[in-house]
């Protein structure tokens, strides 16, 4: 019985990930939920490092733990300061949701367990060296058009968010 360092890191990170998510569901104050989800996002970045995706991990920390958490906090502060989530709205809906989620979990778990996963050939490991450079080459050669479309999407989202959230001064 030998426990490798990778497995130890994986165990700690996955525990933090799932713990953060479960605490997010069980907390009642919305601000606590956002903080707990920040822990989840950070540990997911750690999992990405374990998967040799360093650039994606850094982007995860910047975008999710940084930007999206802060944006959510702004949303909370601009709507209800001490908002509490009373949880399930109707008694029936909670049980139905649990049932739907449980059925989905069982089906997907069975799918994962019954599929024979074939290990990749060994030369694949050499591809992953110098992650950021390779990622940049991939994005700017094979994925140029989706990249440009993404920039257009970001511009549209920026303008749309400003217009939606702007105060209407002279309506009616």
């Amino acid at each position: 019985m030998q426990v490798s360092g990778t497995f130890l890191a994986f165990a700690v990170l996955s525990l933090l990930t799932i713990g953060g998510a479960v605490f997010m569901i069980s907390f009642t104050r919305v601000v606590h939920m956002v903080i707990s989800l920040g822990v989840t996002f950070l540990s997911i970045a750690g999992l990405f490092v374990l998967l040799e995706a360093e650039f994606v991990a850094i982007s995860q920390i910047l975008v999710y733990s940084g930007a999206i958490s802060i944006l959510m906090l702004f949303g909370i502060m601009l709507t209800k300061h001490d908002a509490k989530d009373e949880g399930v709205s109707k008694a029936n809906k909670g049980w139905l949701s649990i049932l739907v989620v449980a059925v989905f979990f069982v089906i997907a778990f069975w799918g994962i367990q019954s599929t024979p996963w074939v290990a990749p050939p060994d030369n694949a490991a050499a591809v992953q060296e110098d992650n950021a450079t390779q990622l940049g080459v991939e994005i700017f050669t094979r994925f140029v058009i989706p990249f440009e479309l993404t920039s257009v999407l970001l511009l549209v989202a920026l303008v749309g968010a400003i217009i939606l959230a702007k105060k209407e001064e002279d309506n009616e």
């Binding site: 975008v63 944006l71 709507t79 991939e138 993404t150 970001l154 989202a157 939606l164």
Partner: peptide, 26 residues
């Protein structure tokens, strides 16, 4: 690396979605 590239695109779309969602909520 295609999976990682897809992850980057997913993050971008998620950021845009959150921005517009928060704006709608406000």
């Amino acid at each position: 690396l295609t999976g990682q590239v897809f992850t980057l695109f997913t993050m971008t779309v998620a950021a845009a979605e959150v921005a517009v969602g928060i704006a709608i909520l406000i």
